[in-house]
């Protein structure tokens, strides 16, 4: 049983947490691709920027002496999401909208998004330096340990408070997004525009409004993903820049333009990464008792060494592009 609990701690919980973050980021990327037809690289900066906004708000709360029962990062999250959505709208207005007006190709917008990435990255580093910050300087990070001796495990089940909240918040957001896309007028208009932008325009759908709503959702969910990542690990200027490719991989594996695909893709990549570096000997060690001597398990038995963890996402990405470029949910074709 100890082995099974270890597996839960190492793979199920961390895979789920990673999957949530990837999924939330990938939803934004896939929605922007569906509506505006370009790969938005600066999404990482919406995430990092959002996380820094949340951090500033949390620090302000701490400075005013406001104590909250759950981590302050989660309390300030709604305000941070609103600010991040405004930031996303501003970025679109300042950088992408003029190019779209000129009728620039998607590739030009892609390059412009690299420019935006560099600018925001530069600004964040300018103001915050290159160091890392923690949300838990003024409050403890609570860790729940569930004693599993009852089922014969010597190890406890370990999960931190932010992780529990993160999984819950993701679940709620995904459900909210689902209802928005399938029940609301604007959500349906968004799907319509992703399906056929010309027809959406002809139907009288206010496409400029749909574009704005897309940026609002992308900015808000990006901020959520970034903040939660920062709550789980630490906040640094290249927080999301380092994981933007796995997020793209999640969006592509799920099928670009497909919101549900992005969620599935995020979970898939998250679990693939944790499973690939998991040391299987830890789980299979009881087998040593029944295996003959020459077949004893080596001390480490992982599919790939830990330092190649991020590479797993790229390999899945490349294989997906080769075998099924439309992704599992049939997104935009290549």
């Amino acid at each position: 049983m100890t082995e099974l609990i270890f597996f839960t701690n190492q793979v199920i919980i961390s895979g789920l947490v990673l999957g949530c973050i990837y999924a939330l980021g990938a939803i934004g990327i896939t929605l922007i691709f569906g509506i505006l037809r370009f790969a938005h690289f600066a999404h990482s900066e919406l995430m990092t920027g959002g996380a820094f906004i949340a951090f500033l708000l949390a620090s302000a709360f701490a400075a005013w002496g406001i104590v909250t029962p759950i981590p302050t990062g989660f309390v300030v999250l709604p305000i941070a999401m609103v600010l991040a959505a405004i930031m996303a709208l501003g970025i679109d207005k300042g950088f992408y909208a003029p190019l779209r007006k000129r009728g620039a190709k998607p590739v030009t917008l892609l390059i412009a998004s690299i420019g935006v990435t560099l600018m925001i990255q530069g600004l964040i580093r300018l103001f915050f330096g290159a160091g890392s910050y923690s949300f838990f300087e003024h409050e403890p990070k609570e860790v729940f340990r569930f004693d599993m001796a009852g089922i014969g495990s010597t190890r406890p089940l370990v999960i931190t408070e932010p992780q529990v909240l993160m999984i819950l918040v993701t679940l709620v957001s995904v459900l909210a997004l689902h209802f928005f896309l399938t029940r609301s007028r604007l959500g349906k208009a968004m799907r319509a525009m992703a399906d056929n932008a010309d027809l959406a325009q002809v139907s009288g759908i206010n496409t400029a409004l749909v574009v704005r709503v897309t940026w609002i959702i992308a900015g808000a969910l990006g901020c959520m993903a970034g903040t939660m990542l920062a709550l789980d690990v630490t906040l640094k200027p290249d927080l999301a820049f380092n994981i933007i490719l796995p997020i793209f991989a999640a969006a592509i594996v799920g099928g670009l333009g497909q919101a549900y695909g992005a969620i599935a893709g995020g979970m898939l990549i998250g679990f693939a990464e944790t499973l690939a570096v998991f040391n299987w000997t830890m789980l299979l060690r009881p087998l040593n008792a029944i295996l003959p001597d020459w077949m004893q398990l080596p001390p480490t038995l992982a599919l790939v060494p830990t330092e190649y963890k991020l590479t797993v996402a790229f390999v899945i990405l490349v294989v997906t592009l080769l075998v099924r470029p439309t992704g599992i949910f049939k997104g935009a074709s290549s």
Partner: peptide, 9 residues
């Protein structure tokens, strides 16, 4: 990094 982004935009 900022200057690079500024120049490209």
């Amino acid at each position: 990094v900022f200057v690079l982004g500024l120049v490209i935009t």
